[in-house]
Design a protein around this nucleic acid. Structure first.
Lengths: 204, 204
DNA sequence: GCAATTATGTAACATGGATTACATTATTTG
DNA sequence: CAAATAATGTAATCCATGTTACATAATTGC
């Protein structure tokens, strides 16, 4: 039984998806409510009625992004038993999502950098999501160490920080126009470097 | 002979330096003219008279930043004959400049990401400066290959892209709160990875 | 059909932030 | 001292952008 009142003439999910794509492409500050309203194809009051305000819409968009896009690299990290495979899959996943021609980069990694005072809500929000990725990476390296995949000297925290820096940089390179091939060759080298801390790796 | 007219009551260079520090800390969009005017300690018309407008002031601030701050890592890249030393010095230099407690990160690398439409002038400007860094890195690797420092298989372009991604990421990690120690241990690993492509390196 | 409810479109309002008009003040030159 | 020149402070103006008031339209339940 639909609720009383005039029914919506647009699809909320579809509208959210369009908003997400815009935010992905241009970030929070680079996307105006006018842009969003136009992309959704309705007038401002309808969008406000459906989503609240810009902050709330952004939050929902980021949730959609997280579940649809960011989850890929995150899951890949955990699904393989070998740390090498895990990273390789995660990177491949990241590069793919960063390489859509019109959109490019990563909403979370490349979002709201140096754009607004630190205390603004969306800045904190994105940062906390970056922390999630970092923690996932960190836990994966701790597990690898535990599993005996890494040499004694290997420092999982440092490795996580290194690979996270690299991934973070990839997102910016994508934003700055690096091709998929360039991103991929970067990743290839980053993965080769893992040999330096793998226990069973055979030096060439 | 000073020009006719009332003399300025503030030091232009000092004002520019303060503006640069603000832009460094908060980026172009995160810094308002009101902030700048307050930091300089004058009223808006005086600042406009001295610097033109926000864009022009930003441009001058970035020039100051480039010559005073960014030049360090760039010079370090070229001043050493060994690619390993060159990178090590450049990274150390970068980490130092990114680690000032109150300021942190890099004006050029972390500036104007996903904050404003691509076509805005300051966005293009920062991007072009990033290209300079990338090109310097690329040329340094080409030279290393030429000098016989690298193995046959080494791809200087890919190496440049990788290390630039990493440096780019470092800037964001710094912005996101990584400690100097974390940045340093990341760099250490990144430099160890160079062994994979160094001709004379002895595998362990 | 009528009341209640919710969406829509038009047209505003509110705010923050870049920029400037104008009168005034301080300095050099003649 | 007068004229010219340039800086200063006050107080606006302009504009983009987020947000909402209000009248109207479409739907449900009685």
């Amino acid at each position: 039984m639909p609720p009383a009142g005039r029914p919506r003439t647009f699809n909320r999910e579809e509208a959210l998806q369009r908003a997400m794509l815009l935010f992905w492409k241009n970030g929070y500050e680079g996307t105006t409510m006018a842009d969003l309203v136009a992309a959704i194809g309705m007038k401002a009051p309808s969008v406000y009625a459906a989503f609240g305000n810009k902050d709330a819409l952004f939050k929902e968009a980021v949730e959609l992004y997280t579940s649809r896009v960011e989850q890929g690299p995150l899951n890949a990290l955990e699904q393989s038993d070998s740390i090498g495979q895990a990273l390789e899959n995660s990177f491949a996943n990241s590069v793919n999502m960063m390489s859509s021609p019109e959109i490019s980069s990563c909403l979370i990694m490349a979002g709201a950098i140096n754009c607004a005072p630190e205390h603004q809500e969306h800045v904190q929000h994105l940062r906390s999501l970056r922390v999630v990725y970092k923690e996932t990476l960190r836990n994966r390296f701790l597990r690898a160490k535990n599993d005996g995949e890494l040499i004694e000297d290997a420092d999982p925290e440092a490795l996580a920080e290194f690979y996270f820096s690299f991934i973070h940089g990839l997102a910016l390179r994508a934003k700055d126009g690096s091709t998929k091939a360039e991103l991929e060759s970067s990743c290839k080298f980053a993965l080769q470097a893992l040999a330096l801390v793998l226990r069973q790796s055979q030096p060439r």
